Each structure stands twice: as C-alpha cells, then as structure tokens.
Deep mutational scan, measured.
Amino acid sequence: DAEELIELVERALKEGREIILLGVRITSEEAGKWFIEWIRRFL
C-alpha cells in the first residue's frame, strides 16, 4: 500500500540510507519528498 511505501522511504532517508526504486536513486531528503509526492499523486 502507498502509505507503507511512503513510511519506508521517509524512514530510510532519515537514517541516511540510499534508496533505489524503479531504477531511480534517491539519496537526499529533497528527492525523497519529490518521490513521496509522486506516490501520493499516482497511487
């Protein structure tokens, strides 16, 4: 579910982890915020 995915992304970014989803590397909080917004819009 989308909320679970958002929580995972937020937690990983807070822990300083690198996330790779759909071939996109997300390493900064700014990118994470963009990704979370995208999830909310399309899922």
Score class of each variant (00 low, 15 high):
residue 7 E to L: 12
residue 24 V to A: 03
residue 27 T to K: 11
residue 40 R to N: 05
residue 29 E to K: 11
residue 12 A to G: 03
residue 18 E to L: 07
residue 38 W to T: 03
residue 14 K to A: 13
residue 8 L to S: 02
residue 15 E to W: 08
residue 41 R to I: 15
residue 25 R to P: 08
residue 20 I to N: 04
residue 23 G to R: 05
residue 16 G to Q: 06
residue 17 R to D: 02
residue 11 R to E: 09
residue 21 L to D: 00
residue 36 I to M: 05
residue 13 L to D: 01
residue 19 I to W: 04
residue 4 E to S: 12
residue 38 W to E: 02
residue 25 R to L: 13
residue 5 L to P: 00
residue 6 I to N: 02
residue 24 V to R: 01
residue 41 R to P: 03
residue 11 R to K: 13
residue 4 E to C: 12
residue 42 F to H: 13
residue 33 K to N: 08
residue 12 A to M: 05
residue 37 E to C: 01
residue 19 I to S: 00
residue 31 A to F: 08
residue 38 W to D: 00
residue 33 K to L: 11
residue 32 G to A: 13
residue 23 G to I: 08
residue 37 E to F: 08
residue 16 G to N: 10
residue 21 L to T: 01
residue 38 W to P: 00
residue 30 E to D: 12
residue 3 E to K: 12
residue 35 F to I: 10
residue 1 D to I: 15
residue 24 V to L: 06
residue 5 L to N: 00
residue 27 T to G: 12
residue 40 R to G: 04
residue 28 S to T: 12
residue 2 A to G: 06
residue 28 S to C: 09
residue 38 W to H: 03
residue 26 I to W: 04
residue 19 I to Q: 02
residue 10 E to V: 11
residue 38 W to K: 03
residue 2 A to E: 07
residue 10 E to F: 10
residue 21 L to E: 01
residue 3 E to A: 14
residue 29 E to R: 10
residue 14 K to Y: 07
residue 14 K to G: 09
residue 24 V to I: 14
residue 30 E to F: 08
residue 12 A to N: 03
residue 24 V to Y: 12
residue 10 E to P: 00
residue 8 L to E: 07
residue 43 L to T: 06
residue 29 E to W: 14
residue 28 S to N: 14
residue 37 E to G: 05
residue 7 E to F: 09
residue 32 G to Q: 05
residue 25 R to M: 09
residue 34 W to H: 12
residue 38 W to A: 05
residue 1 D to F: 14
residue 43 L to V: 09
residue 32 G to E: 04
residue 13 L to F: 04
residue 31 A to E: 15
residue 13 L to W: 10
residue 16 G to D: 02
residue 1 D to G: 13
residue 28 S to M: 03
residue 28 S to F: 07
residue 36 I to T: 03
residue 17 R to Q: 08
residue 41 R to D: 08
residue 2 A to H: 09
residue 32 G to S: 05
residue 24 V to P: 00
residue 7 E to I: 10
residue 22 L to F: 08
residue 27 T to E: 12
residue 26 I to H: 03
residue 9 V to L: 07
residue 12 A to F: 04
residue 14 K to F: 08
residue 26 I to E: 08
residue 11 R to I: 11
residue 1 D to M: 15
residue 6 I to R: 05
residue 26 I to K: 02
residue 6 I to T: 03
residue 5 L to S: 01
residue 27 T to Q: 08
residue 34 W to R: 15
residue 30 E to L: 11
residue 37 E to L: 10
residue 1 D to S: 15
residue 25 R to V: 13
residue 30 E to N: 06
residue 11 R to T: 12
residue 29 E to P: 14
residue 31 A to Q: 15
residue 10 E to G: 05
residue 28 S to L: 04
residue 29 E to G: 10
residue 18 E to R: 07
residue 43 L to P: 02
residue 24 V to D: 01
residue 23 G to T: 07
residue 13 L to E: 03
residue 30 E to K: 10
residue 4 E to M: 14
residue 9 V to Q: 00
residue 25 R to W: 11
residue 8 L to W: 10
residue 9 V to W: 02
residue 37 E to N: 08
residue 23 G to Y: 13
residue 11 R to F: 07
residue 38 W to N: 06
residue 31 A to G: 11
residue 15 E to M: 08
residue 41 R to L: 14
residue 9 V to F: 04
residue 20 I to E: 11
residue 10 E to Y: 14
residue 33 K to V: 13
residue 18 E to Y: 08
residue 23 G to M: 10
residue 6 I to W: 10
residue 13 L to N: 01
residue 34 W to F: 07
residue 40 R to W: 09
residue 14 K to I: 10
residue 31 A to N: 10
residue 13 L to Q: 01
residue 32 G to N: 04
residue 25 R to Q: 12
residue 40 R to S: 08
residue 7 E to H: 10
residue 4 E to Q: 14
residue 29 E to V: 12
residue 39 I to T: 01
residue 29 E to D: 08
residue 37 E to T: 07
residue 29 E to S: 07
residue 42 F to T: 09
residue 33 K to F: 09
residue 7 E to V: 10
residue 10 E to S: 06
residue 9 V to A: 04
residue 8 L to H: 03
residue 33 K to D: 05
residue 15 E to H: 08
residue 18 E to F: 09
residue 15 E to N: 06
residue 41 R to Q: 14
residue 11 R to W: 10
residue 34 W to D: 12
residue 38 W to V: 04
residue 43 L to G: 04
residue 30 E to H: 10
residue 38 W to I: 04
residue 6 I to K: 04
residue 40 R to A: 10
residue 20 I to T: 14
residue 9 V to C: 10
residue 20 I to D: 02
residue 11 R to N: 12
residue 35 F to E: 01
residue 42 F to A: 08
residue 27 T to D: 15
residue 21 L to H: 02
residue 33 K to I: 07
residue 42 F to M: 11
residue 20 I to H: 05
residue 34 W to V: 10
residue 21 L to Q: 01
residue 27 T to I: 09
residue 36 I to G: 02
residue 6 I to Q: 03
residue 37 E to K: 08
residue 16 G to F: 09
residue 18 E to I: 10
residue 11 R to H: 09
residue 29 E to N: 11
residue 27 T to N: 15
residue 4 E to G: 13
residue 19 I to F: 05
residue 8 L to F: 10
residue 18 E to Q: 10
residue 31 A to K: 13
residue 5 L to C: 02
residue 1 D to W: 15
residue 43 L to R: 02
residue 31 A to L: 12
residue 37 E to M: 10
residue 2 A to P: 13
residue 2 A to N: 06
residue 15 E to L: 07
residue 26 I to L: 04
residue 39 I to D: 01
residue 39 I to M: 06
residue 19 I to E: 00
residue 6 I to D: 01
residue 1 D to H: 15
residue 43 L to Q: 08
residue 27 T to M: 09
residue 42 F to L: 11
residue 22 L to N: 05
residue 43 L to S: 06
residue 23 G to V: 11
residue 23 G to A: 07
residue 40 R to I: 11
residue 19 I to H: 00
residue 32 G to P: 04
residue 21 L to S: 00
residue 15 E to Y: 07
residue 10 E to K: 13
residue 28 S to I: 06
residue 42 F to N: 10
residue 31 A to I: 15
residue 25 R to S: 13
residue 23 G to S: 07
residue 35 F to Y: 04
residue 43 L to C: 14
residue 5 L to T: 02
residue 10 E to A: 06
residue 15 E to V: 05
residue 9 V to M: 06
residue 10 E to C: 14
residue 41 R to K: 14
residue 14 K to V: 06
residue 17 R to A: 09
residue 8 L to D: 01
residue 33 K to G: 05
residue 24 V to N: 03
residue 16 G to R: 06
residue 9 V to N: 00
residue 26 I to V: 04
residue 16 G to Y: 04
residue 22 L to S: 02
residue 40 R to P: 03
residue 26 I to S: 02
residue 18 E to V: 09
residue 25 R to F: 12
